[in-house]
Design a protein around this nucleic acid. Sequence first.
DNA 1: GCTCGATGTATCGAACCGATACATCAGGAC
DNA 2: GTCCTGATGTATCGGTTCGATACATCGAGC
Lengths: 215, 215
Amino acid sequence: MGKRAEALELAILGLLHDAPLHGYELRKRVNSLLGWGRAFSYGTLYPTLKAMVRQNYLAEDEPAGTLVTPGPHRSGRRGRIAYRLTPEGKERFAELLTHTGPSAWEDEHFGVHFAFFGKADADTRMRILIGRRGRLQDKLDQFRSALSRTRERLDAYTLELQRHGLESVEREVKWLDDLISAERRSIDAPPGAMPTPGAGEPPAPPTGNEGEIGR
Amino acid sequence: MGKRAEALELAILGLLHDAPLHGYELRKRVNSLLGWGRAFSYGTLYPTLKAMVRQNYLAEDEPAGTLVTPGPHRSGRRGRIAYRLTPEGKERFAELLTHTGPSAWEDEHFGVHFAFFGKADADTRMRILIGRRGRLQDKLDQFRSALSRTRERLDAYTLELQRHGLESVEREVKWLDDLISAERRSIDAPPGAMPTPGAGEPPAPPTGNEGEIGR
DNA sequence: GCTCGATGTATCGAACCGATACATCAGGAC
DNA sequence: GTCCTGATGTATCGGTTCGATACATCGAGC
């Protein structure tokens, strides 16, 4: 099925979990849900949607509400199609959500899984966070050994690029560590309490625009 | 030609600029040169190399030094092929290096351009850095408006993901700002001085190979 | 009532990836 | 010695994914 499409499938199921959406809106949300570097194109989205309908995970609703008028048009407008999760789709979502394994913490997949952590159980969350941390640690080791092997042969700009890349991964690890501690804390704490993933900061005071940027 | 292949072409030309390499080594260097998320596969590298040979940017050397023995093997081992830049290749490299424009500061391209800044002139460097900064600023605005539009509808994890993504881009912008100031300083300073891209750190102590490319 | 940009579904050729095949060679195990 | 394994090395193929485009409606503004 392709690794990327797998991530897309989870994203679609998750986004349709609470309310039906049509393709255009779905794409916007999938691509903005996470600051994803790579955006999915329609050429990927629509075939995937069709495949999921075929597998009975989704159903199509064509709301005649907005003046369908299937007139003598050659093609084009077919009326917006709202996709809705079937019971099988919900099962599939739960399955993908809970399924941990290398695929869950690869670069392409981790973001989607994390976005739907709210619907996963604490155990799954922890396994994926730990797995992701290990993955980043590998990357870090790789980076460092490459740096120490070739440090003398690099010019200032290449070196700076390496340094910056390494720093980014290090920050990512730190972020994960904070998330993991927060999860652990919430396990000890009374159940139902939010884990306050706020990266180790004090429980977010309601400033009204947490993390907002003053433009 | 495809956007990704364009970045690969520049990377190949840059890496072969100082010394010939064979495919396997080339791939390793391209993929580690920058902590690139996405690695190029052989399925991309070899066809690209062949195309570049066809365009006369590269020439193949099959060093008989390592026991070629073109015996009755059906296929497989053909002896390692070292690729070397032709004069046209060097021209092409200079052309791609100097060419500024949207393509130079997209996510996929910026890293490669930056890695070879040491071989570009100060003017080109500055244009690309500024262009990249604008690109990131767009991303930032997009991020922020998405956040403010949907803040109330997001659960804690999705929100945290957004916050973290935003923060990463902000740090990227800060990095660029530091690089840009360093460039400006080096323009005012005596020519030939290195711009010390060390992100605001004290001027890099002379490592003995200032601006030189190893090897 | 006109254009223009956003919304919307859909497809196609080209680009690209991932896995694999095939082959040599160094090193250690035995 | 020789067998095995993992690193080095070139190359291709099937299938996935992208980027561009076609086509169509609708609201806003002039």
